[in-house]
C-alpha cells in the first residue's frame, strides 16, 4: 500500500484538548505538514498565545514559547532577533491578535519582522466561554452580545488581513477558510508560502484562517462549517491581500 496521507511527524502523538470538530486541529495539522515538507522541524520555534491555542506547544514537536495574551508577535520578535537562523511562527486567535494584541501584530508587520503568523479567526472568544470577539459578526449572538452584536454600541468586525495589507512592511497577507477540503488545501498552500517567505528572508507573513467554534456557536461541527461558509466568507472575503513588500 502506498501512503496517500499520513500523520505529520511534527505533530506530537497526543489527543488535543480542542472540542470535537474544532478547526484549530486542521490548522495545527497544516502547519505541521508544512514544517515536515520544508524540512525545518529542527530549527522551528513556535509561540503559543492565550486562548484555546494556549496549549499549542503540547501539539507541535518543536521548541515553543508560551506568550502573554496578545504579545506573541513581540515574543516572536525577541526570538527571531536572537536567532535569525531559526524559523519562528506565532499561532494566535482573534481575541488574542485582533483585540488585546492589535498593537503587537501591527507593529511586527510595520517592522517587517521576518516571522510567520497563523491567525485563527472564528469570530468568538472560545476558551473563556463564547464572548464577543472583535471579529464577531454584526448580529451574531455571543454571551456578551446576547441580543446580537449591535454596531451602535459594539462596533463592527475587525478585518485584520485588509488592515495589515495597508502596512508597507508586511510581505504576505492572505485569508483562507477551513470549511471544506478544497479550501483546506488552499490554506495549506498559503501557510507553506508564509513559511517559505521566512526561509527566504522576505519578511512578515500572516495567514488568516476562517475557523469554526461549534461549541460556542451552539451547533454541530458540520453545521458550523456551513455557517462559516454562509456567514463569515461574505464578511471576510478570501484571497491573498498582499504579496510583496511596499504599497
Amino acid at each position: 500500500m502506498n501512503p496517500v496521507y499520513t500523520r505529520p511527524k511534527s505533530l506530537t502523538n497526543v489527543v488535543t484538548h480542542y472540542c470535537p470538530g474544532c478547526t484549530h486541529g486542521i490548522a495545527h495539522r497544516l502547519v505541521a505538514e508544512t514544517i515536515d515538507e520544508l524540512g525545518i522541524q529542527g530549527r522551528t520555534i513556535g509561540v503559543a498565545s492565550v486562548g484555546c491555542s494556549v496549549f499549542a506547544y503540547n501539539y507541535f514537536d518543536v521548541d515553543f514559547q508560551q506568550a502573554a495574551h496578545g504579545r506573541a508577535p513581540a515574543v516572536a520578535t525577541g526570538i527571531k532577533r536572537v536567532r535569525p537562523e531559526s524559523i519562528v511562527f506565532a499561532y494566535q486567535g482573534d481575541g488574542d491578535l485582533a483585540s488585546i494584541g492589535m498593537a503587537e501584530i501591527v507593529h511586527a508587520a510595520v517592522r517587517g519582522e521576518n516571522i510567520t503568523v497563523i491567525f485563527i479567526n472564528n469570530a468568538i472568544y472560545g476558551m473563556t466561554g463564547g464572548q464577543m470577539a472583535p471579529t464577531t459578526l454584526v448580529g451574531q449572538k455571543t454571551t456578551t452580545s446576547p441580543f446580537g452584536r449591535d454596531p451602535g454600541t459594539q462596533g463592527y468586525p475587525v478585518k485584520i488581513s485588509e488592515l495589515l495589507s495597508t502596512v508597507k512592511g508586511a510581505y504576505y497577507v492572505a485569508r483562507f477558510s477551513l470549511h471544506n477540503p478544497a479550501n483546506v488545501q488552499r490554506a495549506k498552500q498559503g501557510i507553506k508560502k508564509a513559511f517559505q517567505n521566512q526561509i527566504e528572508g522576505k519578511g512578515f507573513s500572516l495567514v488568516e484562517l476562517l475557523s469554526t467554534c461549534s461549541t460556542n456557536w451552539g451547533m454541530t461541527p458540520q453545521n458550523a462549517l456551513k455557517w462559516l461558509e454562509e456567514n463569515m466568507i461574505p464578511e471576510y472575503p478570501l484571497g491573498e491581500f498582499k504579496t510583496g513588500e511596499g504599497e
Binding site: 496517500v4 484549530h24 486542521i26 495545527h28 495539522r29 483546506v184
Partner: peptide, 10 residues
C-alpha cells in the same frame, strides 16, 4: 484532510 485530530491515514 478534514480531520481536526489527525486520526486518519490513507
Amino acid at each position: 484532510r478534514m480531520c481536526p485530530d489527525a486520526v486518519i491515514e490513507v
